[in-house]
């Protein structure tokens, strides 16, 4: 009986071509690999997405909560036609992007979360996702929304998206924007980068383990800790800042 119910509840994914991994050089000189992950990798990723749920800045909290649920649903077969791409620097998780197929011709972009700030990590990961929908799966358009003003500025204005306001997006039911193939073709040269194939040692290192991000966004540490600590007899505020900085270096 229980097996039968599971059969009904568990969606059957449509076959889609896999995302061929690629790599690129970042502003820091580091090489970043972007590759598709399967269900077996999801628990490793969830671990690093979970702390972001408590970061209010730039809507990390809402995005992380939603991404967590999307990843979980993927892992436990409660969403249809979802895919997940990750960006890794030296094995470390730098970004997660996901989405699904609304129909054969229309894609629905879910989330782009950068676990490393700066270096345009999020931009590269988002562009890879669009490349997947349009170039690799061969879809005609991708529906997009942004939760944060940063995301809005970056995607809606840089790509010049078209309005599809009659279509509610799955994220929050808000009006959708659309990246069409024509728009993507215009943006391709400046926004989509990456080299294939990934040199085998680089790819193997990325596949071996998804390492924790070394400097993920965190709830605000006391940014005035150094000054506050002058009046804090225990000095803990300053110490915790110092430790944080030493870990960075």
């Amino acid at each position: 009986m229980s097996t039968d119910v599971e059969k009904i509840l568990r969606p059957i994914d449509n076959p889609i071509p896999p995302f061929p991994p690629k790599y690129m050089k970042l502003a820091s000189g580091d090489e970043m690999v972007i590759r598709q992950v399967g269900r077996e990798d999801i628990p490793d990723i969830l671990r690093y997405v979970e702390p972001l749920i408590h970061v209010e800045r730039d809507y990390y909290d809402i995005v992380a909560v939603r991404l967590y649920s999307e990843l979980l649903a993927y892992y436990r077969y409660r969403v249809q036609d979802e895919y997940v791409l990750v960006a890794q620097i030296d094995g470390e998780l730098a970004a997660v992007v996901n989405g699904r197929l609304l129909s054969k011709e229309v894609g629905m972009s879910y989330h782009t979360v950068a676990l490393r700030r700066g270096l345009r990590v999020g931009a590269h990961a988002f562009a890879a996702k669009m490349e997947y929908h349009i170039d690799i799966i061969g879809q005609k358009e991708v529906l997009i929304v942004a939760e944060s003003p940063i995301g809005f500025r970056r995607w809606m204005i840089e790509y010049g998206l078209e309005k599809r306001f009659h279509m509610a997006h799955e994220l929050g039911g808000v009006p959708s924007w659309s990246l069409t193939k024509a728009l993507f073709d215009q943006a391709r040269d400046t926004l989509v980068v990456g080299r294939r194939p990934v040199p085998p040692p680089l790819l193997e290192k990325a596949k071996a383990t998804i390492l924790p991000p070394s400097d993920p966004p965190t709830p605000p540490t006391d940014l005035l800790a150094a000054t506050r600590s002058l009046y804090d007899s225990t000095g803990t505020a300053l110490m915790s800042q110092r430790w944080k900085q030493e870990r960075k270096g």
Partner: peptide
């Protein structure tokens, strides 16, 4: 940041 990452690599225009 490095000169390679912001100027010389094929990805520099996007970085």
């Amino acid at each position: 940041i490095t000169l390679e990452g912001i100027l010389d690599s094929p990805e520099a225009m996007t970085n």
